[in-house]
Every structure is written in structure tokens, then in C-alpha cells.
Nucleic acid binder design. Structure first.
Length: 833
DNA sequence: GCCACGG
DNA sequence: CCGTGGCAACGCAGT
DNA sequence: ACTGCG
């Protein structure tokens, strides 16, 4: 019986594969027979071609897949005949069994023999046409001559490359093959969602690269640098597509033991140029290419097709292999995938709108959701190496809690070879007998303890209930931080998430791509259905000179547009005082409260009685509740936004207590940082959290969000009390004197007097009328501790910062604190102090 | 930035 | 036609 | 009552 060999190799008690003989012969019409191509993930990934013939399946194992236009001849090893039931078999063959590993159906369909099948199989040469769900084309199978024992070696040959999958030849539009395409990029989004309009993929942490296949292979990084030579293991990429000419999009990655990509692992390879170096690195840290899009195929531009169609085409053409893989995707279930990503310690996920075309820039059609967190940790020890690893195994990390170093978990991945050595050298002189931890951990490997002086930057998925890190990855050493300052950064966002676990928000704020505008003159812009006329876009607001970059009004509007999702929530409901700079920061600005005559009808205005001497008139204030309003206001050459400290509907009850830290010497920002920390301590005595931001000018603002329950008289009094305490602690540093002449001898004027109805401060994320267009930027307390330069935050880089770190001022929107409780807490503290 | 006013 | 003026205003504290 | 201040 021809299936004897099949039977002999298998134990049907253990393998799910079909027994021979049980199957139906199947229906067949004329000269059509059935075939299947299995993708078999055994000791090596390979493809198995099985052709129905003589009541069984003639089978070949094809280690490099089917022949393709790029690789017209590929080896095919004839293996034992399989039963017909194998046509529909898919499953996992268990460990220890013949052919152990996952067997999946990659393609199936019918084939038409183009010569006489009865004799062709025996002669060792047959030509056939495959009509599968994926493959449609003409192939020849020919037995090679070779010496003894070579009788099972065949060649699979693609007979007519130009006819392969010819049915796809009308997709897209005819175009010559482009060069230097830019990859489409995702916009950072907040909360993941589920939507039938989107598919979701894993976000890779590697090098984004477009691959051009056209005779040769070119792999281009985002900055259009050739990468193909650097990753020899990707060389046969071209041979894994069933088309001769194409452009695909994907990411080059290196994977850890868990199969998770980390850019750090690739770091050692990104600059190599020497051939032998590259070969060695490829052995030590192999690279993988995950393909997720197709932009061009056989003379046709596919970028205007919807993503869903591009995915279909890609999966028809692509034979994944060990180093060249397909990025799996799932439709609709964004939240589930995000959860999965976080569990596995993956960077995050990407949501892509299925109807969207491919665009060569950042677009909201692709949204990325980050699942990782990051902070600094003190290195308190390390474990001995295991296996092939040299020098050490993992770093033992800690954070300070009440003056003690508390163990926070260990990190054993993310080190480059070079970093491993540098770390070891840095740690060696710090070894000590005593563990530095309050409760020393007991790791599986023997540990060495260190004087807690080194600080590591680590990213991780989340804190476990036990307060340890889940999926930590080492990012780098920091030499700019005092280890004593390292504490667990309480994630306020987590609290928010927990509190908001009920009804779901659609998604968090996103940084928008710049809008397209003419370099000069006027234009109409439609924002969320609002028509806006933008004027004098080329008007220079910040002159370019030695002190700062040149920015035009278009840059201001562009900035506000991009960050609108972040700034609008901080402005919503708050009357604005306008300060307008129609002739730029060098010329005289003017104030305006009354909404200008050209204010569109849809823009929210609020008529508020003016308290001013006698006149019982009302002023129609602008209120910025939406992006379109923000853009309108920016077009008025309002460089920064001046919102009230109270919001509608109760303008008499502030929800923010503001402290304005104004250095006496404009260059003495150090004084601001120092006083901010002092203020943080004093607020802490009342159990209150403050949120710091640069003013954008010379100083710093600290906001304390409170419940909308107190009068301005109360908030002002409280601000005064806290300020007096600060002044009392550091009389050398802090003055509360209003007249400038009396501030001499102090370094900082602590202004609590702004807490009055109708008074304003420049809002968070507002650019300022100073050279270089600095932006009022929220800081983490870590940054206040370690020191920053306010001029480093400008309209040129804040969108990126927001994209990376989100809204550090989000607390001001929801962390409404109880002033009465604070006073109770503080009075206790005052009595004892 | 733009309107209203006056020359 | 052009040039120009207007476009905010609170409350505190010190005198 | 006037002024400086933000």
C-alpha cells in the first residue's frame, strides 16, 4: 500500500493527523485535481506542497517556499505520500512525534496537469497550473538527477512568472515604481477602543523600513538609508513574494527570549558597516522583518486602495518565513489586543482604519496606543550570569520609600553587549557586603549587593499587586539624577483609569499632524465643520535673530492645531482675556476682552457683568471650547491664551489655586526650581498635590486644582498662607513684596495675589512672546528636581513631547482637592510645627 | 488684526 | 484714498 | 485719593 510509509512514521494515538484510508475520494471534474500547501512550522519553517494523485497526496517539502519571480527555482524534497484527508488537516503535531510543530493550511484549491499525469509523476517531470485561493500560476516539478540517494530531490520551477497571479494585475493605478517613499506614521492616541472600522496590530519596537523588490532588493529606513546590506538574514525577502515587483512596508526587529521586540537589542547592529562584523552580529542578534503593508505591485500603485484590500493582496503574495514574517492583525477588538500587549510586555498596539489609503506622513488613520511605562530606578545589586550571558544576569532595582530603598524587581533584558560591559565596570567598585534594600530580595541566582549610587532608566508594562515590575526592560544608565530622589512615580493616570472604568471615553487626546497651508497669504480652513478664514499666514510673529528661531503666524496656528486636543480641555469654559501681537513680539501688543466684531456666531461667548467703576455693562468674553475656536483666536495673533482661574457655570468659585514664581533675576530659573520644591513640601503638609509648569517666560507656575466650592477670598487667603510658610522657611530666597523696589536681596517673588476673579495666567501649552517661542510646559516633579531650561520647550518640540509623554497637566483637570480637609490636616501640622 | 473715524 | 486710534481693568498695598 | 504692580 502506498501509504505504508506514512503510517509507519506516525503514532495515531498521539498525532492528530488523519489515519490513512478513512477519507472520501472526493469529487473531481475533468482534468482538475485538488492540492494543498501547508505551512509547516517544524524544526525549520517550510512549506509542503501536496498534489492529489492516484488516491493519495504526492507531497514535497519546500524549505524556502514556492518558487517566485525573484527565485524561479526552489528545492522541493519529495516525501512520503499523505492520505487525501490531509487536504483539510491543520493542527499541532505534538512534541516527539514525526513532524512535530504547527501545520497550517497556507493555500488550497485545484490544479490542472498540463501534461499526462499518469506518466509524469513516474518520469519525474510534471507541469501544472495551480488555482488556489492565493496562488494562481504555472509551475514545473522536475526530479534532479544527482548521485545515489538523491532521488527525492526535485526542483519546483515557476514556469511563467509574468502570469503569476495575473488576476491582481488591475489593482490600483498604473505607475512607474517609485523610490524614496516615506512610511505612513501613526498618531499617539490615548485610550484604546474597539471599532469595526479598525484593525489592530502589535506595535513593534525596531526600525521601520520599506522594502523595494525589483530584480534586486532594497530596504530603506525612514531617513532613506539603505539597510539591506546590514541584515543579510533578510536577503531572501524578495524570494518570499509571489510577485516580481513590489514595495512592502514593515519593521526590522530583534527579539528577546519571549519573542518581544526591543530596539535596544538592535542597537548594536544599526551602525555596522563591515561585512564580517555584520555577519557576526547577525549570528549573535538575528533580525526579523515583520511585513504589514503593500504599496506597489507589478507596475501598479496600490496606495490609494483601502487598507483592507492591501492586506488581502499582501496575504496572497507573501510566504512568511523564519526571518520574514507577517504582522498579525485583528479586526475591531482593540481593547482585547491592548490587554494582550500589556500582559506580554509589548510596546503597545496600532489601530489602523481599514478604509484608509496609505499616506506618506503621520495620519490619524493610524493610531498608536502605548502600553509601556518608564521611570528611573536605583540599582541595588545584580545577580550572577546564567547560560551564555557574561558578567551579570539581572539588575536588582529599588525605589526610595520613607528614606529606605525598597526592592522593585529585577531587569534582565535590554542590554547591548557594550552596555553589559559598561554596567559591569560601573558596578564593580560599588560592591558591598550589606544589601542596600530594606527587605533584601532573594533572587534565584546568587546576588552581589551594591552601594546604591547608579540610576537605571527602565520601561515596564505595569506594577504587579506586590509592587514589582512586570516586563521590565533596561533602557540606559542615567548620570544626571541623585539616587535619593528616586521614588515610585505614582501613576495618577491609573487612578483616573480606575475611576473611569465605567462608561468608556472614545479615546484620549492626540497630537494632530500639521495642516497643509499655503506658505503665504490667506486660506480657508475647515475644522470640525467650522469654516475659518486664516489671514496673513506669513506674518512674522517671532523674528529670526540670534536669540531664537523665526516663526510666522502660520507656525503659531499650526502649533495650536496640532496640540489642540491637549490644550482645549484646559481652556474650556474659561473666559479669556486676549493679548494680541498683530506685529509680532517686538511690537506693541494690546489687550482685548470684548469679543472682536469678526467673531463667528458659533464661537462660544459669555457676557459677564463688568465690575468696573459704576458702569453696569457686560463684556462678551470669548470662551474656547473647541479646536476651531482656538484656531480663530490664534489667527487674531493671540500668541498665548489667558484663561480665568474659574470656569463656567460658577465663575465666582475658582477650581485652581495658582502660585506664580517669578525670579527677581530673569536668568535665575534655579530659584524657581528650588522654591517649587519648597512649595511642594509645604503643600504636602496640607496633603495637597501641586502641578508645576514653566510659565514660558522666566518663571514657573504651580497649580493646585481644588473643588469648585470655595470663594476667591478663600483660595487667595490659602495661597497667601502657604506663601508665608514658604517665605518663613527660606527668607533668604523668597519675597512676598509686591513693589519691585522692595524685592532686592531676594531671589524670587512668590506671587499669590493672582487668585482673584477675572485675573489670568498664561495657560498651559501656550507659546509666549519671547524669542524662540517658548511654551508654558508642565513638568514632572522629577524634572523640577533634576532641573530643566524653560527655553528648551518651544512650539517646535512640544508636539513631540506631548506625543511621547501625554498631558502631564491632566491632573489639573480632574484631581480636584478638598481645601477644608487640607486645612484640617495642615492645622494639625501647624500646631506641632 | 481690523474696524471706525477723520482728513 | 490713507493714516491713526482703539482695542482691559482688579484689588491690594503703600503713600 | 492716587499710584505701582502683575
Amino acid at each position: 500500500m502506498i501509504l505504508d510509509e506514512y503510517q509507519k512514521k506516525r503514532n495515531f494515538g498521539k498525532t492528530p493527523e488523519p489515519r490513512p484510508g478513512g477519507g472520501l475520494p472526493g469529487t473531481r471534474t475533468g482534468r482538475q485535481f485538488r492540492f494543498v500547501i501547508h505551512k509547516h512550522d517544524a524544526s525549520h519553517i517550510h512549506y509542503d506542497l501536496r498534489l492529489e494523485h492516484g488516491g493519495a497526496l504526492k507531497s514535497w517539502a519546500m524549505p524556502k517556499g514556492l518558487p517566485t519571480p525573484h527565485d524561479r527555482k526552489k528545492l522541493a524534497i519529495a516525501v512520503e505520500d499523505h492520505p487525501l484527508d490531509y487536504l483539510s488537516f491543520a493542527g499541532r503535531i505534538p512534541e516527539g512525534q514525526y513532524g512535530a510543530g504547527r501545520m497550517e493550511i497556507w493555500d488550497s484549491g485545484t490544479y490542472i496537469p498540463l501534461d499526462e499525469p499518469e506518466t509524469a509523476f513516474g518520469k519525474g517531470k510534471l507541469t501544472l497550473r495551480l488555482e488556489g485561493g492565493k496562488v494562481r500560476g504555472e509551475f514545473t516539478l522536475a526530479r534532479m538527477k544527482g548521485g545515489e540517494g538523491k532521488g527525492n530531490e526535485w526542483l519546483a520551477i515557476l514556469a511563467k512568472p509574468e502570469e503569476l497571479n495575473a488576476d491582481l494585475g488591475a489593482e490600483g493605478t498604473a505607475a512607474p515604481m517609485p523610490r524614496g517613499l516615506r512610511p505612513m506614521q501613526a498618531v499617539l492616541a490615548g485610550r484604546p477602543f474597539s471599532s469595526a472600522d479598525y484593525l489592530f496590530e502589535i506595535k513593534f519596537d525596531g526600525i521601520r523600513a520599506l522594502s523595494y523588490v525589483n530584480g534586486g532588493l532594497s530596504i530603506m529606513s525612514r531617513n532613506l538609508k539603505e539597510q539591506a546590506f546590514r541584515y543579510p538574514e533578510l536577503a531572501d525577502l524578495a524570494g518570499h513574494f509571489l510577485a516580481g515587483e513590489l514595495i512592502v512596508d514593515g519593521e526590522i526587529v530583534a527579539l528577546d527570549e519571549q519573542g518581544v521586540s526591543h530596539f535596544q537589542l538592535l542597537q548594536g547592529r544599526i551602525n555596522l558597516t563591515g561585512k564580517s562584523e555584520i555577519a557576526a552580529a547577525a549570528r549573535a542578534t538575528p533580525a526579523y522583518y515583520y511585513v504589514f503593508d503593500i504599496l506597489y505591485l507589478n507596475g501598479r500603485d496600490l496606495t490609494q486602495l483601502p487598507l483592507s484590500r492591501r492586506k488581502e493582496i499582501l496575504s496572497r503574495l507573501f510566504m512568511p518565513h523564519k526571518h520574514i514574517r507577517v504582522s498579525e492583525w485583528v479586526e475591531e477588538q482593540g481593547e482585547q489586543i491592548f490587554h494582550f500587549a500589556r500582559e506580554r510586555g509589548l510596546e503597545g498596539i496600532v489601530g489602523k482604519r481599514m478604509a484608509a489609503p496609505y499616506r506618506q506622513h503621520r495620519s490619524r488613520d493610524w493610531l498608536k496606543f502605548k502600553a509601556v511605562r518608564q521611570q528611573e530606578f536605583v540599582i541595588g545589586g545584580f545577580t550572577m550570569p546564567r547560560g551564555s550571558r557574561a558578567l551579570f544576569g539581572a539588575l536588582l532595582l529599588g525605589v526610595y520609600e520613607d528614606g529606605d530603598l525598597v526592592y522593585a524587581g529585577h531587569v534582565g533584558t535590554g542590554f547591548s553587549e557594550d552596555m553589559l560591559q559598561r554596567l559591569h565596570a560601573a558596578m564593580a567598585p560599588l560592591v558591598q557586603e550589606e544589601p542596600p534594600f530594606r527587605v533584601p530580595p532573594r533572587p534565584n541566582e546568587p546576588a552581589k549587593w551594591l552601594r546604591p549610587e547608579l540610576v537605571a532608566q527602565v520601561k515596564f508594562a505595569e506594577w504587579t499587586r506586590e509592587g514589582l515590575l512586570r516586563h521590565p526592560v533596561f533602557l540606559g544608565l542615567r548620570n544626571d539624577m541623585d539616587p535619593r530622589d528616586i521614588v515610585r512615580e505614582e501613576k495618577i493616570l491609573e487612578k483616573k483609569e480606575a475611576a473611569a472604568s465605567g462608561p468608556r471615553e472614545p479615546s484620549g487626546p492626540e497630537v494632530l499632524p500639521p495642516f497643509e497651508h499655503p506658505p503665504a497669504g490667506d486660506m480657508w480652513l475647515e475644522v470640525a465643520g467650522r469654516e475659518l478664514r486664516l489671514t496673513n499666514l506669513d506674518k512674522e510673529l517671532w523674528p529670526g535673530d540670534g536669540r531664537g528661531e523665526r516663526y510666522a503666524k502660520s507656525d503659531l496656528i499650526d502649533y495650536y492645531y496640532r496640540v489642540s486636543d491637549f490644550i482645549v480641555p484646559h481652556l474650556a469654559g474659561r473666559p479669556l482675556t486676549l493679548k494680541r501681537y498683530p506685529d509680532g513680539i517686538g511690537a506693541g501688543p494690546f489687550f482685548q476682552k470684548e469679543a472682536p466684531a469678526e467673531t463667528p456666531a458659533w464661537l462660544h461667548t459669555e457676557a459677564i457683568p463688568s465690575e468696573s467703576s459704576g458702569k453696569r455693562e457686560r463684556i462678551r468674553y470669548l470662551v474656547c471650547d473647541e479646536t476651531a475656536a482656538l484656531i480663530f483666536i490664534a489667527n487674531l495673533a493671540c500668541i498665548f491664551q489667558n484663561p480665568w482661574l474659574s470656569a463656567l457655570p460658577d465663575l465666582a468659585r475658582p477650581d485652581i489655586i495658582a502660585f506664580d514664581l517669578d525670579p527677581v533675576d530673569p536668568d535665575d530659573f534655579e530659584a524657581c526650581l528650588e522654591v517649587a520644591l519648597l512649595l511642594k513640601d509645604q503643600l504636602g503638609g496640607f496633603g495637597l498635590r501641586g502641578y508645576p509648569k514653566t510659565s514660558g517666560a522666566t518663571g514657573l507656575h504651580v497649580y493646585v486644582p481644588v473643588k469648585t466650592e470655595y470663594t476667591f477670598a478663600q483660595t487667595r487667603q490659602f495661597a497667601e498662607l502657604v506663601s508665608i510658610l514658604c517665605q518663613h522657611v527660606r527668607p533668604d530666597l523668597v519675597t512676598l513684596e509686591q513693589p519691585v523696589s522692595r524685592r532686592a536681596g531676594s531671589r524670587l517673588y512668590l506671587d499669590f495675589r493672582q487668585n482673584v476673579m477675572g485675573k489670568t495666567l498664561a495657560s498651559v501649552y501656550s507659546p509666549r512672546a519671547w524669542p524662540g517661542a517658548p511654551v508654558s510646559t508642565p513638568l514632572s516633579w522629577q524634572e523640577v528636581q533634576r532641573g530643566v531650561k524653560p527655553a528648551d520647550f518651544t512650539i517646535a518640540n512640544i508636539p513631540e513631547r506631548l506625543q511621547a509623554s501625554g498631558d502631564l497637566f491632566a491632573g489639573v483637570l480632574f484631581d480636584r482637592q478638598d481645601l477644608m480637609e487640607a486645612l484640617r490636616l495642615g492645622s494639625r501640622f501647624l500646631k506641632t510645627g
